[in-house]
């Protein structure tokens, strides 16, 4: 259960670790190039009528007899979007993916970031509308708990466009998926990257995805679409499959690297909190 006390305690531990790793500056402190109110000095500007006189630097006036005002960096809260692959191909890994989403979402909400969670399949399904604050933790966990996989191919590219149409502001986009997309992932990642989103890919694959344990005459069935076909899988076909999966993963790595997109690959055998800890130790969700 994502909402039971044991799991939440694990999330608390993650949050504490996050505070420690990131020197306690987690308070909605996504730096912005905009100048405005804040606590971090950025620059001086000539005083104009109407400007906030509280910002006048009197020490400078005393020395140079000119009125200047201090400018501060605007500290605005970031919006974090988690795109959770909800297709049937994630069935065996869905619990693990939800744990990862819960962990990341918990940290975000505790850092007073805005968080939204979407289900990713043949369309974009909102799981948690944009929310902020610790009060949204339980709804987040409850929504994730209730989430189920849905039939249909994962259309990551079209979902990316759909996402961009909804949220044009620059944000952090975390994609949790196995990235076994029939239509590929390049277009989607390019699109998000092009629109200045900080994209981070969290690839979850298990042994059934990377290795072929099938052999002989079988009726192969697509878990997403229900298509099936009678095939004979010999060692040659099994090797071809494993090569194809390896090539797909290599392509994902190359695609992310070329776009400076952060990527972490994991399997359900590794505890989700270890994965998040590892991400935090590497400096957060950055490429």
């Amino acid at each position: 259960m994502l909402t039971d006390a044991t799991f939440i305690r694990r999330l608390d531990s993650l949050y504490l670790l996050a505070r420690k790793v990131l020197n306690g500056s987690l308070q909605a402190d996504r730096k912005s190039t905009k100048k405005g109110t804040g606590i971090t000095f950025a620059d001086y500007a000539e005083y104009h009528p109407g400007a906030d006189y509280r910002s006048i630097d009197w020490r400078v006036f005393a020395r140079f007899e000119s009125l200047v005002v201090k400018l501060f960096e605007v500290e605005e809260d970031a919006t974090i979007y988690i795109l959770l692959d909800q297709s049937k191909s994630m069935e065996s890994k869905f619990r693990y993916a939800r744990q990862l989403a819960a962990g990341l979402g918990y940290i975000a909400l505790n850092c007073l970031d805005r968080l939204a969670v979407y289900g990713l399949s043949d369309s974009l399904t909102p799981l948690l509308e944009p929310a902020r604050g610790r009060g949204s933790v339980m709804p987040l966990l409850q929504e994730l708990e209730d989430a189920r996989t849905v039939a249909g191919d994962t259309r990551f590219n079209s979902c990316s466009r759909l996402f961009q149409a909804r949220h044009q502001r620059k944000s952090v986009v975390i994609v949790i998926s196995d990235f076994l997309f029939p239509d590929g992932f390049d277009d989607g990642l390019s699109y998000l990257n092009w629109h200045k989103h900080d994209v981070y890919c969290l690839q979850v694959q298990n042994d059934d995805d990377t290795r072929c344990t099938l052999k002989g005459d079988i009726e192969l069935e697509c878990v997403e679409t229900g298509q099936h076909r009678r095939v004979t899988i010999s060692p040659r076909e099994a090797a071809l499959y494993e090569e194809a999966v390896a090539a797909l993963n290599a392509r994902l790595i190359a695609s992310c690297a070329s776009r400076r997109i952060g990527l972490a690959s994991t399997t359900p055998e590794i505890a989700f909190d270890h994965v998040i800890q590892d991400i935090l130790r590497k400096g957060g969700l950055v490429a």
Binding site: L214, I218, E219, L220, C222, V231, E237, A244, L248
Partner: peptide, 27 residues
Amino acid sequence: RPTRKPTNAWFLWEDIFQENRATSLFQ
């Protein structure tokens, strides 16, 4: 009658069996 086995990467299998179409008649 073969047993039905689900796969997460159907599109990969399709590519593989697309190459083996020559033996499909025998199969």
